[in-house]
């Protein structure tokens, strides 16, 4: 009986204490949770952990990265984050793959319910195995035009960024290759090493070591400008095939988001910490080591980037027949 009574008393005490402590809080006064919608150790996760540590130092609290994975386009994590209060204590680790969640039957809202903070991304690059007879992207395209579907191209799953880049390249250059999907960039590259495919499209970050080791030969990057890689200049595929601008560039876009209805004064604090963190040496070093083009976009600038990605991803998937819903259902315009 005594035990029960004491529990009752304790509970009454804490309940009244909680009521007393509700108001007049300084932001941030407790740890912030970063719900990363992709797995631990992946690009989104690592980038989020780096910036979370840096921003945590600036804000004077911990930012804890939790991985809540699964669903279509990370929808389980998106839902979980969206269900949290808009108090600025929850941020969401996202990448470009999330924008297709709605049409894939995952998250049931457009991405405009979030405000984005873009850390950056690594550009996509076309490479071939060293024994392939192509030295330049032009030779590759000529060969592919003469022998449609003869080249086996590896990239990650249907509807992934790299697959969309491959599609953009095929359309822009007017060629057909045999697309072999892999469950990730690492396995696609591994397949190139074993000779299963002869062409891979992954990001510079993912390929860097293989290029340096001479195990892959870079042909072209899929961004408008040529790319300086460890003293060698990799040309842009756009130079030879201007048509490509219709479909590309489609760049990796890793960062985090907060709910749009977070109070403005708290948003301002996050923006300030984000800007400072992006300017820090840690982030610069991280960018260099990982061949990241650092972006630092937030607010309207980030919104424009995400809107474009959302439209391209959603409509491409819909046109491929891989989407569950039409982008029109969500009011996503075709760019």
């Amino acid at each position: 009986m005594k035990k029960a009574l004491s529990i009752l008393i304790i509970s009454i005490v804490f309940v009244s204490a909680l009521f007393a402590s509700g108001s007049g809080e300084v932001y941030p006064s407790r740890d912030i949770t970063d719900i990363c919608v992709f797995g631990a150790g992946g690009g989104t996760d690592v980038a989020n952990r780096v910036i979370a540590a840096e921003m945590g130092n600036i804000l004077g609290v911990n930012i804890n990265v939790n991985n809540v994975t699964g669903g279509a386009g990370g929808s389980i994590g998106l839902y979980q984050a969206y269900d949290q209060a808009s108090d600025g204590y929850t941020i969401i680790g996202v990448s470009e793959s999330c924008v297709a969640s709605a049409v894939m039957g995952g998250f049931d809202k457009r991405m405009n319910v979030f405000d984005f903070f873009i850390i950056g991304g690594s550009p996509d690059i076309i490479s071939v195995t060293p024994d392939a007879p192509f030295q330049t992207v032009e030779e590759l395209v000529e060969y592919a035009k003469a022998n449609p579907n003869a080249i086996k191209a590896g990239a990650s799953t249907v509807g992934s960024l790299h697959h969309l880049n491959l599609l953009g390249f095929m359309n822009g250059a007017g060629i057909q290759v045999n697309f072999i999907p892999y469950d990730g960039s690492a396995s696609a590259q591994n397949a190139a090493m074993t000779g299963e495919v002869s062409l891979v499209i992954t990001s510079v970050q993912e390929q860097a070591e293989l290029i340096k080791g001479g195990l892959l030969r870079p042909l072209a990057v899929l961004i408008p400008e040529a790319y300086e890689f460890e003293g060698q200049t990799i040309p842009s595929a756009f130079d030879s095939y201007p048509d490509m601008t219709k479909y590309l560039p489609l760049e990796q876009c890793i960062g985090f988001a907060i709910k749009s209805d977070v109070p403005d004064d708290r948003k301002a604090i996050i923006i300030d910490a984000f800007e400072k963190a992006m300017a820090s040496d840690t982030l610069k070093e991280y960018g260099e080591n990982n061949y990241f083009t650092l972006s630092g976009a937030y607010g309207d600038e980030a919104r424009a980037i995400v809107d474009n990605l959302e439209s391209v991803f959603s409509w491409t998937l819909y046109d491929l027949g891989a989407a569950k819903f039409s982008p029109e259902d969500f009011g996503i315009p075709r760019v």
Binding site: G41, V46, R49, V50, A208, E209, L210, K212, G213, L215, E285, Y286, N289, N290
Partner: peptide, 9 residues
């Protein structure tokens, strides 16, 4: 990767 080590050849 978090510690700036890029494993590879």
């Amino acid at each position: 990767l978090l510690h700036g080590i890029a494993p590879g050849p």
